[in-house]
Design a protein around this nucleic acid. Structure first.
Length: 797
RNA sequence: GAACUUGUAGCUCAGUUGGUUAGAGCGCUUCGUUGACAUCGAAGAGGUCAGAGGUUCGAGUCCUCUCAAGUUCACCA
């Protein structure tokens, strides 16, 4: 053995060794162990050194007690299952993904324990993210999504993702993850999609799906709507304009929405405005006059501004709410005055087609120059330093535009089937336990305040919603966007285009459609045959399919997998996607199976740099796990991430940590090297057995095994790592090996200790420990062919 | 406005159901090492565990309050 451990020589080789043995597949593991026991080379043909092997010791004891020798494999009869949170198929891994090492550590421990252990890999199509990246690529080529019909665009993105999908998988392997690759799934695999569509239909049958014309959060840059959770609220300073509004005055930061106003609202108890309530007032604008009713609503705060609010139902969520409440009083019908591209519509000609920012300036300019017949200005005052918070797109950072669109929603708290309540119950009964500093309370808070979930996304890369609109008789209520015979983008009413194109031609080249809320639809995977239909062009929110991941991955693999491994033992992920993913997995999981999809949720913290600062590209402190791996080895990276980590708490790591753990791999290597050397050529003072401190040694080692095992079973992997590290280095190496040089600890105990520590260290540092194991195997010090499937140490009396 | 988390050595963090002299890595001081490892070893300095009060035989750990930092949510005409 070399005096230094060179991870570059072994990592790839060792991973291959495991893969070729099929050691990650629960269907093979038991066989592997049993086969090994049947191997004549490994049964009781012991050299002297083999007596040091705890495996053979147990066996010898068993033989003594006249028990049948079944080999070393101990099946506990328990199962242990995890599904990897699927990384984006076309993105390289970042440190967050490297934190999945927590899962590998748990998986390796349980596999060695003898549990029926499964870890399923997969990748996510990441609808919006991926389409966005792809569109950027198109832009570089001078094209956009409007140059392609739906089908072609989908095919192109599929191709693009395929080309890149090896990257993530390859990197997961580089980190040593013992995922069962034979069960790999992609969120757009046919069988997965079929399951997801079935869930949607089932939800629809149960009355939990509805289509509604509501204000949704729309990003005009990304061209799609979002759910409430995907909106980031940020503080901004904007001017607040107070304008004359008939006899009253109102304030607004968005004068460009004024064209969509339908009423004025005041607080019912405000003495200043009591006389106006219910009255129709004439309001003068620079572009004309309009009559509007005054309504009374508790929502209006009399202390804010003038205490009177203009009501713009289609471009403000609160106004929409007030309009719904007072629908019957308000005569004026609301109309959208901003479209999905962020341009003004349905307004005086001079403003139409302006973007919202330009429109605002234009409106203000006209207000400033306009004088009433009495010579007064309509612009009363401007507060330049008004602080408020606005919704922005979590991805591109642009302002979110509340727009009225017909979308599909999931009822989260239906009277009959209450998804939220079911999830809360699972928490109450401890069916699912949350590990992560106070995150359970946060999860409950989310659940208690959850709104219905908008699952429609106006993008192509995803699973199409299985909804068909009847075109017969509804041609005037459906807008189609498609490519004409010259491959030019066209938009307009279906009724108009049917004059020059057949419905089939339009459907073939469709980009998107927009059906009025009144158009009847049917829910089915295939096109209905009782007339002419056109399919909804929206796709599901990616989280809708991700939320079914634990179930659909198990159901689409081996038939028995679902029975065998559901619910998952652990769901491990970052706390940042608790509401997006974990919460929804619980809601849909319980809906689909009547069981919470996982017993434990382990939430790892964010990885920060060595100074505790958040990583960001602009700061240049981003750690690339693959770079760290090539410099220090996968084992060092893994150990550095896991040691002393606590669920729910952020973790700082940096070069000093990687270096320290790289040293640990080397220390392990050298401890093994020393013991092998001593076994082969003992020194003068070396004692092979019965040294004065041997009994003490056994006691201490037993204590360590018990302590580490306890930490594992309590999901305290960070602590387990710390204990193993300290005891291995500062007790086993610094004390025991040193004392053995004076004959105070016997070689027999050292060998036993080494093998035990290799096992205890293996979940954290699989490569170096397996590499050493292979050396020991060659020298017949150990018997099991692979450390990865050898038995977890038990205290020996 | 509210909730949650955090405050332990110079820095980054552990501390398992409350139990002797509070731990690790990095950094620092002194010394050692010609046969496991300088990617090493030994010895050491450095902490009234944010502050105050309480429960207890006993509190870093449980409770209350105060201060500070961070995260998130809600409102915002």
């Amino acid at each position: 053995m070399d005096s230094r451990y060179d991870f570059k020589l072994s990592e790839e080789k060792i991973y291959k060794l495991w893969e070729e043995a099929d050691a990650f597949n629960p269907d093979s593991v038991l066989k592997l162990r049993q086969n090994d026991a049947d191997n004549p080379d490994s049964v009781l043909k012991l050299r002297q050194a083999d007596a040091f092997n705890p495996d053979s010791k147990i066996e010898l004891q068993k033989d003594k007690n006249n028990q049948p020798n079944k080999g070393t494999a101990v099946a506990t009869g328990n199962k242990f299952s995890i599904v990897l949170p699927p990384p984006n198929a076309n993105d390289p891994l970042h440190v967050g993904h490297a934190m999945y090492v927590v899962e590998d550590v748990m998986i390796r421990y349980h596999r060695m324990l003898g549990d029926d252990t499964l870890w399923i890999p997969g990748t996510d199509h990441a609808g919006i993210e991926t389409q966005f990246v792809f569109e950027k690529k198109l832009k570089k080529e001078g094209k956009s999504r409007f140059n392609f019909d739906r089908k072609s665009l989908y095919q192109m993105i599929w191709q693009y993702v395929q080309e890149n999908s090896e990257v993530a998988v390859d990197q997961l392997k580089k980190l040593g993850f013992s995922l069962d690759w034979s069960r790999f799934k992609f969120t757009l695999d046919e069988d997965i999609v079929a399951e997801v569509l079935e869930t949607f239909q089932s939800l629809y049958r149960d009355g939990l799906i509805y289509r509604d014309f509501k204000l949704v959060n729309y990003c005009t840059k990304c061209g799609t709507s979002y759910s409430e959770l995907e909106v980031d609220h940020v503080e901004r300073i904007d001017p607040l304009y107070t304008i004359q509004y008939g006899p009253l005055q109102v304030s607004t930061v968005r004068p460009e929405t004024i064209f969509g106003d339908v009423a004025i609202a005041v607080n019912p108890n405000d003495p200043r405005y009591k006389e106006y309530v219910g009255k129709h007032l004439e309001v003068e604008f620079p572009w004309g006059k309009k009559t509007m009713i005054v309504i009374a609503d508790e929502y209006v705060d009399p202390k804010f501004g003038t205490g009177a609010v203009k009501v713009t139902p289609y471009h403000d969520a609160n106004d929409f709410q007030m309009w719904e409440t007072h629908k019957n009083e308000i005569i004026e019908q609301p109309i959208p005055v901003i479209d999905t591209s962020g341009k003004i519509i349905n307004s005086p000609d001079k403003y139409n087609n302006l973007g919202v920012v330009n429109a605002r300036e234009a409106v203000l300019k006209d207000y400033k120059s306009y004088k009433t017949a009495e010579g007064k200005s309509l612009l009363i005052s401007v507060n330049e330093k008004y602080t408020h918070s606005v919704g922005t797109c979590y991805r591109c950072g642009r302002l979110i535009e509340p727009l009225p669109l017909p979308q599909f929603f999931i009822k989260v708290a239906d009277d009959k089937i209450n998804l939220v309540q079911n999830a809360l119950n699972a928490l109450d009964t401890n069916e699912t336990k949350i590990f992560g500093a106070g995150r359970e309370k946060i999860l409950r808070h989310w659940l208690n305040n959850l709104k219905d979930w908008n699952i429609s996304r106006q993008i192509t890369w995803g699973i199409s919603i299985p909804v068909w609109y009847k075109t017969d008789g509804n041609e005037e209520n459906i807008i189609v966007n498609f490519l004409d015979k010259e491959n030019q983008y066209q938009t307009g009413l279906l009724s108009d285009w049917l004059k020059t194109y057949s419905l089939e031609e339009i459907k073939q080249n469709i980009q998107s459609i927009s059906a009025n809320i009144s158009v009847p639809y049917s829910v089915s995977v295939n096109e209905p045959t009782d007339g002419n239909y056109i399919q909804e062009s929206d796709t599901f929110d990616t989280w809708f399919s991700s939320s079914q991941w634990p179930i659909v991955t198990l159901k689409t693999n081996n038939k028995s997998d679902f029975e065998r491994f559901y619910p998952l033992s652990v769901m491990e992920t970052g706390y940042d996607i608790l509401p997006f993913w974990v919460m929804r997995m619980m809601m849909l999981g319980i809906y689909m199976t009547n069981k919470s999809p996982f017993e434990n949720v382990y939430l790892h913290g964010l990885i920060r740099d060595e100074k505790g600062k958040k990583m960001s590209k602009s700061k240049g402190n981003v750690i690339n796990p693959i770079e760290v791996k090539s410099e220090f080895g996968a084992d060092a990276l893994r150990m550095a991430l896991i040691i002393r980590s606590t669920p729910g708490q952020d973790k700082s790591v940096g070069k000093p940590d990687f270096k320290a753990m790289r040293n640990l791999t080397n220390k392990t290597w050298n401890a093994a090297r020393f013991i092998i050397m001593m076994t082969e050529e003992p020194h003068d003072k070396t004692v092979t057995e019965n040294s004065p401190l041997d009994q003490e040694f056994d006691q201490k080692l037993n204590d360590i095994i018990v302590e580490v095992t306890q930490h594992f079973s309590n999901l305290k992997v960070g602590l387990a790592a710390e204990v193993v590290y300290n005891e291995f280095w500062h007790w086993f190496c610094d004390i025991c090996i040193e004392k053995s040089k004076d004959g105070d600890v016997s070689l027999k105990k050292l060998s036993y200790g080494l093998i035990t520590f290799l096992k205890l260290l293996h979940p954290f540092m699989p490569f170096v420990t397996e590499t050493i194991w292979q050396e020991l195997l060659e020298k017949k010090v150990v018997k099991n062919k692979l450390l990865i499937v050898s038995d977890w140490p038990t205290p020996v009396s």
